[in-house]
């Protein structure tokens, strides 16, 4: 397996606080890698560095063989990396379908081609709509395509935000706590969706997740972060038994007790 994403020694300070401090991990193609760790461990900051929203003070990020730590988020998306945010952040006033179509970059969105049009512009636009509809169907929202996004429930908005991130056919998707706030039914649906993305659609997923059941059941690899740095990495079973993991989630006394 080749690493499609390689994060090496990234650091980011906010004033006196080292949010991320010399963190390194890799994500292999066609796998699910979970980034775990207690609150404040630097997971989301690491996400923001990888997706270009923050520039690291030190370190390198390599995506598909290309160094990307200096690139802007929109450039990184165009290289094939999409992300979601902790909140769904759907465009409330747009229709569900338009929300998804925003994720397709096309010629017709520049002023000149918007006026002139032509066959290529129109066929790109049509293809974008078809792809958006197909993805909405896969997340179960096609029937609501023409409703305003604000009419969707929180869980549905979460699925919409994931659909929006998928429509550009990215190679890797970064999902920031996608299961938070979902009820039991939609929770299972989301886990299935993530599994299918990797097994059927041949995508790669980097996940921030707090629910250990999800992490342990769907991850190919787990990366544990604590106080800004990556302290353990391996299969779910390996990381579960790691000393830092026990320390992080159960406290130091349990480490002593288990020895």
């Amino acid at each position: 397996m080749t690493a499609v994403l390689d994060v090496k020694g990234i650091s980011k300070r906010f004033g006196g606080l080292a949010a991320v401090d010399n963190a390194s991990f890799t994500v292999e193609e066609h796998t699910i890698t979970s980034l775990i760790g207690p609150n404040g461990a630097g997971k989301t900051t690491a996400f923001n560095i990888v997706s270009g929203f923050l520039k690291p003070d030190f370190g390198k990020v390599t995506f598909a063989g290309q160094s990307i730590e200096h690139l802007e988020p929109h450039d990184i998306y165009r290289l094939g990396m999409a992300r979601t945010f902790q909140d769904p952040r759907v465009f409330q006033e747009m229709s569900v379908l338009d929300n998804v179509m925003v994720g397709v970059r096309q010629k017709g969105e520049t002023p000149f081609w918007a006026i002139v049009r032509g066959a290529e512009v129109n066929s790109q636009w049509k293809a974008a709509r078809e792809r958006a509809e197909k993805i909405l169907e896969s997340v179960g929202l096609l029937a609501r395509a023409n409703e305003a996004a604000s009419a969707l429930s929180f869980g549905e908005q979460r699925f919409l935000s994931i659909a929006r991130a998928l429509v550009g056919e990215p190679r890797i998707v970064l999902l920031d706590e996608p299961t938070v706030g979902l009820d039991r039914g939609t929770f299972g649906q989301l886990v299935e969706l993530m599994k299918n993305l990797v097994s059927k659609e041949r995508k790669t997923i980097l996940l921030i997740e707090h629910n250990m059941d999800v992490v342990m059941s769907i991850s190919d690899k787990v990366v544990l972060m604590m106080q800004g740095t990556t302290v353990a990495s391996g299969t779910p079973a390996e990381v579960r038994s790691h000393r830092s993991m026990v320390e992080a989630y159960l406290g130091k006394r349990h480490v002593a007790a288990s020895q």
Binding site: F53, P73, H74, Y77, F85, F91, G168
Partner: peptide, 18 residues
Amino acid sequence: AALHAVRDDESVAMSLGI
């Protein structure tokens, strides 16, 4: 759609390649 995305949420618009 691209303009409305920028209007409503610049960070999300960026994350979608705009």
